[in-house]
Design a protein around this nucleic acid. Structure first.
Lengths: 335, 335
DNA sequence: ATGAAAGCGCTAACAG
DNA sequence: CTGTTAGCGCTTTCAT
């Protein structure tokens, strides 16, 4: 049986309440008794029982991270998700918070789990790793006034919902301008997401940059699983594309492979810049020039945003994390 | 304020204990009162307070999943980790268990977190997603007799520790034999893990298969980040390798890319089989022929193994999950 | 600065 | 089959 606060109290010759006060560093406790009690706690190997604390404090000290619905399983293969999960979990540790994960194959499943967890007070807050239009989970969280934040940008009620995100249009601009500075004039934005916010914003950034420089602004180049790859390559060639801005590292790697297959070498024949700067960007040559979105900071911030909201329920904090180009081998200067 | 068991009791005209019994479906309760109480619970929207339950039951109903130390960040990029996490989390849901994650950059960090969580009784059990020799976390869990299981095989005390795993030597054999049946005689086992159990076991399987068929058994082909790729390609060519057994899908994709870069096309010039059958195996052509390790079943089993141990502390259940070849495009028949 | 006592919401004997 | 009662381990007024 674990040692309780009572036993510590008895052993130290004080009241349980005193021990409790020592535990939370209550200022109205004499240095003397404080040290005495701490010594006893240490000697007895006392560890507070969180269940008891939770009961009386009415919180669980657990935050739930909501993964995207994985019917499109492919999406979650991007190292981003595991990276951000780790970042969040590391930061949570500093505040003695535990991170739990909720996963489901569709948003209805996710919603059911979230509702249960919330009603049973299993968790104090939620961190969403995705957002989509008319998402029932976001709606629920919002309506129930549950503390939560989104890593990414809410597509609706962006002003009333806490979130942390990169500036994706600026990011798209940055990437495109980088390519332009490297001498490229025929640049394509290539994605595998039919329609998501990130894709759209980055494309907008791409469009802004190309227009500002008076270059041709192509539509999105879509490359999905089911597509005819030959078609795609042809389109690239007929448009004389020399540089590609790819939606993420994993996708970029596939692209590089596809190009190589068709005799197009990166970066000699075509340059590629991608985003996320995940570990896979440097696992094989050509190492990818990639835009670091600072996953670590995103994760840290998510925790901070929750903490802030717990302190001040009325505030709806939002945060934009800046990005940074990591130059490597997949983009080549062109004259 | 949420409705409590007392309020339900009063509203239903019974004692709190009766309500509690109804909650846990205690057989010694009349159908009549049971239904009556249930009706009231529903009407009042009663939801049990888990903190209170946890306090008196002395368990948290939380299992922690321990991620591998991510100093070798690359490793966790394999979709396996997110996939297994999801599978575990889905299965846990069925038993009303919550999954929390613990991550750290090295095993000391992990150990500290695990110790804390265990001593504070934040979690009831642990599921490890990795295992390595003399791992301090495993040692701790083992010595403290904490309930835990490993997804993968413990490298020490394999008989005294619960785990679920594939049969990796058999898997290596299966893959190799498949290649042999496809007419390949010069087969290489290629990995990026300098020395881990999975790699070793699969290599052994490869060695067994090649020997049994009287083929040349090469040593492990190591291909790591820092290496000279030209060297690697040359080695492949000088050994006239026509088929490769790659350690996992992510690695295989990189290999395919590398080969394409050097004018070697998969599967026309060289065939590739990999393992895990993750989503990335089918995101670009050639779709990878891959051995499905049944991540879902691995995840489910992990939960089952914990459940079993909670029921019967003396049992140390182990489980082997079978694999299955998924034929796709990366292996070609050779005459 | 510290102690006494009540109570968080639930469960588990023990009675009856 | 059901009610009474006594905690689980901690926090928090309210006194002193």
């Amino acid at each position: 049986m674990a040692v309780t606060i009572k036993e510590v109290a008895k052993a130290a010759g004080v009241a349980p309440s005193t021990v409790s006060r020592v535990l939370k560093d209550n200022p109205s406790i004499s240095r003397e008794t404080k040290e005495k009690v701490q010594a006893v706690m240490k000697r007895l190997g006392y560890v507070p029982n969180v269940a008891a604390q939770n009961l009386v404090n009415r919180r669980s000290n657990i935050y739930a991270v909501i993964m995207p619905p994985f019917k499109r399983k492919e999406a979650s293969s991007e190292p981003f998700f595991i990276d951000i999960l780790m970042a969040i979990s590391q930061e949570a540790l500093k505040y003695n918070k535990t991170i739990s994960v909720v996963a489901g194959s569709n948003s209805e499943e996710l919603l059911a789990t979230v509702q249960l967890m919330n009603r049973q007070k299993r968790v104090d807050a939620f961190i969403m790793l995705y957002s989509s239009e008319k998402d029932p989970v976001i709606d629920y969280l919002y309506q129930e006034k549950v503390v939560f934040t989104i890593v990414g940008r809410p597509v609706e009620r962006a002003n009333e919902i806490s979130y942390v995100d990169n500036d994706n249009v600026l990011l798209g601009q940055t990437a495109t301008e980088y390519l332009i500075e490297k001498g490229h004039r025929d640049i394509a934005f290539v994605t595998n997401h039919e329609s998501n916010h990130i894709s759209k914003s980055r494309y907008n950034g791409y469009a802004i940059a190309t227009m500002q420089r008076g270059l041709l602004t192509h539509g999105e180049f879509l490359l999905v699983n089911s597509m005819d790859y030959i078609e795609f390559i042809k389109k690239l060639e007929s448009n004389q594309i020399t540089a590609i801005f790819a939606i993420d590292d994993l996708f970029a790697i596939r692209l590089v492979q596809l190009l190589a297959y068709n005799g197009l070498h990166v970066p000699d024949d075509v340059s590629v810049i991608s985003t996320n700067n995940s570990a896979i960007a440097t696992t094989i040559h050509p190492y990818l020039t990639s835009i670091d979105i600072d996953v670590n900071e995103l994760g840290k911030s998510a925790i901070q945003l929750i903490l802030q909201q717990e302190e001040n329920e009325t505030k709806i904090p939002k945060l934009i994390i800046s990005h940074q180009i990591i130059e490597r081998e997949s983009v080549k200067k062109r004259n």
